[in-house]
Design a protein around this nucleic acid. Structure first.
Lengths: 127, 127
DNA sequence: CAGTATCCGTGATGATACTG
DNA sequence: CAGTATCATCACGGATACTG
């Protein structure tokens, strides 16, 4: 688990190592830009500029940064066509697709609970 | 969708309104502390201090802040017992539980792909 | 077009102290 | 114990300019 606790057992050296890795990955992935990029990619193959246009509000820098991170973690495959001007395409790998499925769940959850959340916010503001 | 595009159709006024709300909620939820708090709560009822101890690395302030946000969005219910010293308990609401299910998916994904990711990172570092 | 580098403001975060 | 408030810092993120 990402939330595993320290137990003091002999295997803890490995357990905590795997856990800190899991936490690190979790921290990488659990940010809105990474999740949105993965979601927008879906099963398409998109160019850098298409991604930028497809994700409202993302800056050039954030897109580059997150794409590198996703590539480093093996969620996104980057293909460079040595033409001029250059053409670079991004697509999800198998692990990337698997992740996307869970993100779909998150998106669905959001839409299913829009009403609940709006209501709750109103009640909360009203103290 | 959280990633819905503007289409120019007549219902867009509402569509974009719902979308911006969805994006806002998505941005609230899609951060590691909110996700970790939700995951750690699970189906337990925990006190503030228990949550703090259960989530490694979270600061007092971040915990308070995220708990308020989760409460505002109706994912967490906060119960205050007017004793002295005060006792405050947190538990997931129904929408909170639904969200947690998808987060479980994220955690499972992380653990299933630990190996893949480590390998990918090594390959990436090696250029 | 895609990417890197740089500058720079500001918002997130942690530490600390204080209250009920 | 739980929570708020304040302050200082620093990394995040945006804008811009430059390169291949």
């Amino acid at each position: 688990m990402v939330t595993k606790q320290f137990t003091g057992s002999p295997e803890d050296a490995d357990l905590t190592r795997a856990d800190s890795l899991a936490r690190e990955i979790f921290s990488d992935i659990a940010n809105k830009w990474a999740l949105l990029i993965t979601e927008v990619l879906g099963d398409r193959t998109l160019r850098f500029s298409e991604l930028r246009d497809g994700i409202e509000g993302i800056s050039h820098k954030m897109l580059t940064q997150n794409l590198r991170m996703l590539e480093r973690n093996g969620l996104v495959e980057r293909t460079v066509y040595p033409t001029v001007p250059p053409r670079v395409e991004y697509t999800l790998t198998e692990p990337g697709h698997a992740l996307r499925v869970t993100i779909d769940g998150l998106c669905n959850w959001t839409h299913q609970h829009l009403g609940h959340i709006e209501d709750s916010r109103r009640r909360f503001e009203a103290n």
